[in-house]
Amino acid sequence: MADNKLYEALNVSRTASDTEIRRNYRKLAKEYHPDKNPAAGDKFKEISFAYEVLTDPQKREIYDRYGLKGLQEGDNNFAGAEDLFGHFFGGGGPFGGLFGGFGGGGLRHAQRRGPRRGENTVHRLKVSLEDLYNGKVSKLQLSKNTICTACGGEGGPAGALQPCRTCSGRGVKVTITQLGPGMVQQMQSRCQDCDGEGEVINERDRCQVCMGRKVTPQTKLLEVHVDKGMKDEQRITFRGEGDQMPGVEPGDVIIVLQVRRTVRVC
């Protein structure tokens, strides 16, 4: 029987086009995004994983032919899938138990990888020794990218996005250099034409709000609670408050406390 778990996670059929998959992902990502639905973190990771597989032509082909087991065995990036799902989904959700009989013991050394995740943003907050002793609440204004609400993170109208011809939709360019007889060097770099997205959109079709960037800048005010007894260089983490990008789980905003140094003049 065909493995349809990833398609079911995105509410699409096995014959769904890239456009349908992306459209459904955007819709589900809005519904289950941790910013709007903090209790749906696992669901957001599941749909992000499904989106990552089904929008990659090579991974989708492997999945369609061999299922999740084929991804596990045929791609090192998925070789630690048993541990990955056990860690992220706790054995529950639509993927729970899928890897129970695949010989997990031999996979402990494999590379682990979850859904794509954005980088963390680090900010330093200057405080006094008195602030650390008594505690205080500071308000910090941050700028971050959020998914464009006008186009739903598509960059333009449905169907406007096309696979990048330069990298064939992979987002990376592979250069092979002949070093000598029987010796070649393979280099991989981000595709400059699509900025690593694997997709391009004509200028005339670009969303007029985000200009095809899929995200728009937003200012957000964070309340940083400095508790009594905190220390210099202690970190306060705001989960999922980093920059947003379609298909990417937002990173964290990390506030690092830094004690103001007083200079005495004799």
Rank of each mutant, 00 (worst) to 15 (best):
Q188V: 15
E8V: 09
V224D: 02
R261C: 07
C164W: 04
I62R: 01
E199T: 11
E46A: 04
D3R: 02
G114Y: 07
E223L: 04
P163T: 12
F85A: 04
K27L: 14
T216G: 05
G41C: 08
R261Y: 09
R165W: 03
C191K: 01
Y133C: 09
L221W: 15
M211V: 06
H109K: 15
E199V: 09
Q192W: 07
N77C: 12
R112F: 10
H109V: 13
T177R: 10
L221V: 14
L10Y: 01
G100H: 10
Q111F: 13
Y32K: 08
S48D: 07
Y63I: 05
D56W: 05
E223F: 04
T216V: 15
E20V: 06
R235I: 12
L10V: 03
N202D: 11
E73F: 11
S143K: 15
F78T: 00
C167A: 07
Q244N: 03
N24G: 05
T149M: 10
H225R: 15
E119D: 13
G251Q: 11
N77E: 11
G242W: 00
L221R: 12
A79I: 00
D18H: 14
G212N: 00
E197F: 06
C164T: 09
P157C: 04
S138F: 10
R108S: 14
C148G: 05
D64P: 02
N4P: 10
L71Y: 01
S138L: 12
L68G: 08
G169V: 03
R235K: 15
V248C: 07
G103V: 08
P115F: 12
G171K: 03
R206N: 01
E199F: 11
M183F: 15
M1D: 10
G114V: 11
V209M: 02
P38N: 06
E154G: 04
L98C: 10
F99P: 02
T19V: 12
G100R: 15
E119V: 09
L221I: 13
L6I: 01
F99G: 04
A79H: 01
F99C: 09
I255M: 06
G155R: 00
R235Q: 15
K30T: 08
G155K: 00
L10T: 00
D35P: 00
V224W: 00
G106W: 08
R206E: 01
G156Q: 04
L6W: 00
I47F: 07
V256S: 13
V53L: 02
A150M: 02
N134A: 10
D205E: 12
Q192S: 13
P157R: 14
E241G: 04
G159F: 08
E233Q: 13
Q188E: 13
R26Y: 05
Q208F: 08
V12H: 04
C148N: 03
L68H: 07
L84T: 08
F85R: 03
E73A: 08
G104R: 11
Q141K: 14
L179Q: 13
G74K: 03
G135F: 09
Q111T: 11
V248K: 02
